[in-house]
């Protein structure tokens, strides 16, 4: 187990460096940040030079990257050009996005696995066909369309849940955005669970469990579902990335001031520190989630642990 964790950690290092460097390069191709700072006015050459020096803008790109990452590890994300520290921006933005993602993730896991299990156990039945059709429809409609339609129907017309998430964020106000954000992933999870459950229900060890005279409930939960969840957990790990990306869309629809909001502002204002900081954190969260899933995977599947 220890070796396995170590190997996973080591493999993550080049991915982390590669990914963050890629983002760094792209963002710094945004154009000249100093010009952007001054907008339409022509900058004073002396002040411009000073700013360039302050932000290491005269160094070659790779050196800028190294210096930036060095600061990052000291939890210094630099400041925006308007002087606000990116760290404080992050502290404002992240809780909202994390709350939204957590709500969505919970909905995705509970309902996705639940529907998938019901569907996979009764393949070809009414419930199965409804789940199949519904998930297909949900996957086909882009999240932002689902978002506007549900916001209008549930939030405005029927008034069941708040249409926008105000400040402070309450669980109730995050429910509708959470459902919207979770919808596509939920459909994928349901379909994947259905496939693996249906596949595994024909497995020899499930037959053995039945032949042992175990109650159906125990066969399904301890043997069938336990094994079927292994690929589902893998999917959930990757899907966190999609959820965080989707959060950008959902936040905009429901007017939540989270990562999406600040990131978008950073992009519009060509504020490279903000953009790199936010995206780097997102990537770190994504990679960490993947690592966590890897460990969970090893816990779930002893054959990986002892490989």
């Amino acid at each position: 187990m220890g070796r396995y964790v170590l190997r996973r950690l080591l493999q993550m290092i080049p991915v982390f460096i590669g990914t963050t460097f890629l983002i760094f390069v792209m963002v710094h191709a945004l154009g000249d940040p100093v010009n952007a700072l001054f907008g339409d006015k022509a900058p004073d050459p002396a002040i411009a030079a000073q700013i360039r020096a302050q932000y290491n803008l005269n160094d070659p790109l790779w050196l800028q990257y190294v210096k930036y990452m060095g600061n990052l590890f000291r939890w210094n994300f630099g400041t925006t050009f308007s002087g606000q520290s990116v760290t404080s921006l992050l502290a404002t933005a992240y809780p909202a996005t994390l709350k939204l993602t957590a709500v969505a993730f919970t909905i995705e896991v509970v309902f996705g696995i639940g529907f998938g299990l019901i569907s996979g156990l009764r393949r070809g039945g009414m419930a199965d066909n409804s789940v199949l059709i519904l998930t297909l429809v949900v996957i086909s409609i882009p999240t932002f369309v689902t978002g506007y339609v549900l916001q209008y129907l549930i939030g405005v017309k029927w008034g069941i849940l708040p249409a926008t998430a105000g400040d402070p964020l309450t669980l109730q106000s995050l429910l509708l955005p959470g459902i919207v954000l979770a919808s596509v992933s939920l459909a994928y999870v349901a379909r994947l669970t259905r496939t693996t459950v249906a596949e595994n229900s024909k497995a020899d060890y499930v037959r053995t469990a039945t032949a042992k005279g175990l109650p159906r409930r125990r066969v399904v939960i301890n043997h069938l579902l336990r094994n079927s969840l292994i690929p589902v957990v893998t999917f959930l790990g990757t899907d966190l990335g999609a959820l965080m990306g989707g959060a950008l869309v959902t936040e905009r629809i429901f007017n939540i001031h989270g990562v999406g909001f600040y990131l978008y502002q950073g992009i519009v204002r060509q504020n490279s520190n903000t953009v790199v900081g936010f995206v780097t954190i997102l990537v770190i969260v994504f990679l960490a989630a993947n690592l966590l899933v890897d460990l969970l995977y090893a816990v779930l599947d002893p054959r990986i642990r002892y490989a």
Partner: peptide, 22 residues
């Protein structure tokens, strides 16, 4: 495989927002 990993490390919508705005 490692290069693929790197590109996989970027959530696609996030990447789109950053790269395409450039």
């Amino acid at each position: 495989s490692r290069i693929a990993d790197i590109f996989f490390g970027i959530p696609i919508l996030l990447g789109g927002l950053v790269f395409l705005s450039v």
